[in-house]
């Protein structure tokens, strides 16, 4: 059902390394949000990535491939685990640094640039293979998605009935 990679090479190693490191960072950082909210902040990244890839990279549009094949294989699934810590860390630092006003814009642009750079590295390692997609489109997509994620963050935090976990 979920095929294994055609060849276990650099893109698979790169992905596993990134997943391992990103979760390590998440677990090492002091807890900032209640666990129930942390789960939502992790899931939002995974869900948005899954939906975007499903809409943009599946047959009909098919603008890029993820990993070795155009199929939905096991390592495609693992890439979604990578988005979860990224969305969490994005919101973690947004909240920790208490970013307000025009600083939000700078934060968004920097994170979008960081995300695009990371995607470029992923592309070099063969995690993504573009077929009509261009890296500059990713910048716009990340910018739009990060705005949505920030709106989601404020929406959730306004409704959370319990105090934030002690950060330090």
């Amino acid at each position: 059902m979920l095929p294994l990679p055609e060849k276990f090479d650099e893109n698979e190693w790169f992905l596993l390394l990134c997943v391992g490191l990103s979760y390590l960072v998440v677990f090492l950082l002091p807890r900032r949000f209640p666990r129930s909210i942390t789960v939502l902040f992790l899931l939002i990244g995974t869900t948005i990535a899954r939906l975007s890839d499903h809409l943009l990279a599946s047959p009909k549009l098919d603008l890029y491939n993820i990993m070795d094949t155009p199929n939905y294989d096991l390592f495609d699934l693992i890439t979604y685990f990578l988005y979860a810590p990224f969305s969490y860390l994005f919101l973690y630092f947004y909240d920790k640094w208490n970013i307000r006003g025009y600083w939000i814009l700078l934060f968004l642009v920097l994170c979008t640039a960081g995300g695009t750079l990371f995607e470029w590295i992923n592309q070099k390692f063969g995690v993504f293979t573009y077929k009509g997609w261009h890296l500059s489109y990713s910048f716009s997509v990340y910018l739009a998605i990060q705005c949505l994620v920030l709106l989601f963050f404020h929406w959730v935090m306004r409704r959370q009935p319990i105090e934030k976990a002690d950060s330090h």
Binding site: M1, L2, P3, S36, I37, V39, L40, L43, I44, T46, T47, R50, L51, H54, S58, P59, P70, N71, Y72, D73, L77, Y80, V156, R159
Partner: peptide, 27 residues
């Protein structure tokens, strides 16, 4: 609870897109 609703929605979006992709792309 609102959080349960968001949680279920995200899980379902992930499951349904994966389920459909497996059926019409992989299998």
């Amino acid at each position: 609870h609102l959080f349960e609703n968001i949680f279920i929605l995200m899980i379902l979006e992930f499951l349904v897109t994966s389920y459909c992709a497996i059926l019409y792309i992989n299998l």
